[in-house]
């Protein structure tokens, strides 16, 4: 049986680990709430834009922007991969990468090449190991991501799309279902499918200044950027939620371990006392 002193040191070291994981859990919980607020507040912008885009799509059928060109043959597609900057958030990133790998495999089997843009440290590290054509990347967005940090990365992809180097852009990120569940998802960003029931009934048109094309171009770019921004914010909320859950289970496990060790420690102590008493009694009998 291990010495009582050894067990005591072990218990105290686990206790300090538990303190850390508990603190991280609480920090993640408060950050998650803020990230969720941010998620909600970025929504009206994108919704409003989508409305206008739908309207423009139906109001000026003679002009189709490249971003709306649905019929392109797919030879090469781009993925924008949104990940967290830091670890200790359970299987959040690895689940996403696994989902992405399955998709990439399917694309390659169909003879489609893939290129990537990464957002966040973990995705970059992953592609370094996995190997892949990374066209642009951004890391260290922090807890409050700003849209201007994303402009460059998104533009790299959009430029490649307009130049015909890639034929579609997808975004891979985690979607926030609830605190316990985050679902990895891959969605198509470009070409935009503006063909929907919504906005079909308009009979009037806007006055455009300077003209419809310029307005639509600016609008579409901003719309895509705002979608990427939303994905980043949502992934941030997922990260905090996943970290909170992971840290909670780590704290619980540490608690169980401490209980077990405490039991072993008590037994060891008891055994030592019993032994001492029997030695004294034995000694007294001999005298």
């Amino acid at each position: 049986m291990a010495g009582a002193k050894e067990i005591r040191t072990k218990i105290s070291s686990i206790k300090s680990t538990q303190k850390i994981t508990k603190a991280m859990q609480m920090v993640a919980a408060s950050k998650m709430r803020k990230a969720q607020d941010r998620m909600a507040s970025s929504r009206p912008y994108a919704e409003k834009m989508l409305q206008v885009i739908h309207h423009l799509y139906h109001a000026s059928p003679e002009y189709r922007h490249a971003y709306m060109d649905i019929g392109r043959q797919r030879k090469r597609v781009g993925y924008i991969v949104v990940s967290s900057d830091r670890g200790l958030c359970g299987g959040l990133n690895s689940n996403l990468f696994r989902r992405l790998l399955a998709e990439v495999k399917a694309q390659r089997e169909a003879g489609v090449e893939v290129v990537f843009c990464t957002i966040g440290n973990k995705a970059l590290g992953f592609f370094r190991r996995f190997g892949g054509n990374v066209m642009g990347q951004v890391t260290h967005l922090g807890d409050k991501p700003h849209i201007e940090d994303l402009i460059g990365t998104v533009k790299v992809m959009l430029d490649a799309y307009v130049a015909g180097e890639i034929d579609a852009i997808h975004i891979a990120c985690n979607t926030f279902v609830n605190t316990m569940t985050q679902r990895p998802s891959i969605e198509q960003l470009v070409p935009i499918n503006a063909e929907s029931e919504q906005g079909r009934t308009h009979h009037w048109d806007y006055i455009y200044e300077p003209d419809a094309r310029v307005v639509l171009d600016a609008l579409l770019t901003r719309y895509i950027e705002s979608l990427v921004y939303q994905a980043v914010v949502e992934n941030g909320a997922c990260e905090q939620a996943a970290r909170m859950v992971a840290m909670k289970s780590a704290s619980d496990n540490a608690g169980n371990l401490i209980d077990e060790l405490q039991l072993v420690y008590n037994k060891a102590r008891q055994a030592a006392i019993t032994q001492e008493i029997s030695e004294i009694v034995g000694g007294a009998a001999a005298v």
């Binding site: 990374v134 460059g152 790299v156």
Partner: peptide, 22 residues
């Protein structure tokens, strides 16, 4: 344009292994 170039450069740098963080 500058932001896009910056993003590209960052990717190249990172993949060439010039970043200690990575």
């Amino acid at each position: 344009e500058a932001a896009a170039l910056e993003a590209k450069r960052r990717a190249e740098d990172a993949l060439a292994g010039r970043s200690a963080e990575l």
